[in-house]
Design a protein around this nucleic acid. Sequence first.
DNA 1: TATTAGCACTCAAGAGAGTGGAGTGCTAAT
DNA 2: ATTAGCACTCCACTCTCTTGAGTGCTAATA
Lengths: 343, 343
Amino acid sequence: MLSDRQLVVFRAIIDDFIASAQPVGSRSISEKEHITVSPATIRNIMAELEEVGFLEKTHSSSGRIPSEKGYRYYVDHVIQPSIIQHQQVDVIKHLLQDGIVEFEQIVQLSAEVLSELTNYTSIILGPQMFETKLKQIQIVPLSKHSAVAILVTNTGHVEHRSFTIPEEYKVADLEKLVNILNERLRGVPIAHLSRQLDNEFFMMLQQHIQDVDTSLGYLKEVFMYDQPTKLYIGGKKNVLRQPEFHDMNKLYSFYSMMENEQEIIRLLTSEKEGIKVTIGNENEIDAIKDFSLITATYSFGQDDLGTIALLGPTRMEYQKVITLLQALSEEITDALYIFNTKQ
Amino acid sequence: MLSDRQLVVFRAIIDDFIASAQPVGSRSISEKEHITVSPATIRNIMAELEEVGFLEKTHSSSGRIPSEKGYRYYVDHVIQPSIIQHQQVDVIKHLLQDGIVEFEQIVQLSAEVLSELTNYTSIILGPQMFETKLKQIQIVPLSKHSAVAILVTNTGHVEHRSFTIPEEYKVADLEKLVNILNERLRGVPIAHLSRQLDNEFFMMLQQHIQDVDTSLGYLKEVFMYDQPTKLYIGGKKNVLRQPEFHDMNKLYSFYSMMENEQEIIRLLTSEKEGIKVTIGNENEIDAIKDFSLITATYSFGQDDLGTIALLGPTRMEYQKVITLLQALSEEITDALYIFNTKQ
DNA sequence: TATTAGCACTCAAGAGAGTGGAGTGCTAAT
DNA sequence: ATTAGCACTCCACTCTCTTGAGTGCTAATA
């Protein structure tokens, strides 16, 4: 689509703008080492690139800035699968391999490191536990009228919830119930728990315990929290370092969005594997229409996908960030695979 | 210290500035309903207030703004223990009483509501668990080489950590160990757990299990996480609404600090009960030398203190905020008391 | 035919100068 | 004691002017 000449200039302009955040003039491009033509020639090429919609001017006599369409082309066709940023990935590699203590710690730390390496905001979405299975249910009574239900998964994840024991119940009843549940529910995917409770067990339980309705109601409530997908965010402060966001309204809507976990989860939840780049107005959410979002998936077990993402200005270091995310997602997948099989 | 006249004017100026964030002129004060004197008289009084250091000018012919010393006097001597903001407290009261499901949810929600009611940033520090006691230890094996240790407190709090089982161990050994620990440690304050493990049990355990050193080492590691004091923050975006913070450097240092949980915890951890106000430079941490911090404590059980705090500009609605925090801390204390005794 | 030097043109951004207005302090009159 | 009145100060705004970095176009060049 673009001639070689155009491509060279286009890339130079994008790289320059990504670094400086300032409109790029023909002179500064012609002065670059690998470019030998005069500013006038650059201007002609720039005019061509503007013609196809890859560049824009901020005013009639200003330098050029890349358009969103330009970034899109850059990401899709210009970026080369480059040499992976070894030094950077290594930092995280060490984190992941050194001592895998707790999955959550790793992820939290990865998010922080990632945002420091890039100066953007990093978001990591914990895997959705489609494949995670119930290992054990336990109920620890705290007093006559309250108890904690604890739920352990095969991945070592622990969820818990305290609840009040209805008057008419006895601890013994609960224990009986838990025993039955443990026998029958062990190995059931977490995601199917509440459905399971509804279906097959209602009848069976009736044989053992009276007043099934209430007890089921309670248990369902305990297990129903719709699997809180955990979210780890690092470097929210980094938006403040970008000149394009030195604007209170943009900042406000950004930080508002960042306080709304549900929205972020919706934004990042992805079915497809691989890297996805959405640029500026391609984003559905208004608050980040000035941002670019790059997401990569990592796998957890065979079917579960988690997401790593970076959120920064449309003027983002796509090349660096994409290779970094790609490498990192593989690292995490590997680390989790080891983590999984060790168990 | 201040005459009645001075006090009336002083309060009027502070209230005006808190509302407008603009230097206050003599005319606008003299026009207030409850003030009958002329601007010239106000100017004289203003000069007196400036003399004692309660007011400042931004330049020689500007209106007055309160100094930090002025705010200090205002907080210490001018604010009246006012009618409690019933409507506002009621919102939270309902939250707390409606259905106490999970302590953490309540606190999280309180933080959000608090920041919305005030337009400042709210921080709630979970109680330090001096008084919280161990209810039960459980170990759920996940595989041959890994297990999760779960720790339930009498307050329904659950902590967990997964760990690798050393080669030479058998699950049976662990179970024996846990049984012993459960017998002997039940009721021990969480804070003393690891000390207890060190002292008395070493010898006793030796009788039952060989290779005590290693097992103790593992268990200590599991229980050692120095009780992560949980932090709930709401309304970080609200700083952006304050004109005095429309400055990237201030914002950056604020948000940087907000990403540093340890520092916040250190800032809020308090030994004394009651409300504490620190204004501007009274704060030790540079990042909030332009802020005022108001902290109130709530009690959890007999000895444990948690903290609720609000962070806003020095131009803060002290009166409203102080009464609100006071009321809220009582509500939380009450709610927790009920929560505790129910168990 | 592609390149480039040259030139006229545009526009943002910054510097000065001028103005209006909101504020002050001081003094003299009430 | 209070206040009207006045001179004064300084910010904030507007206007104009200048500068410089950029453009597009044209005509000359290789």
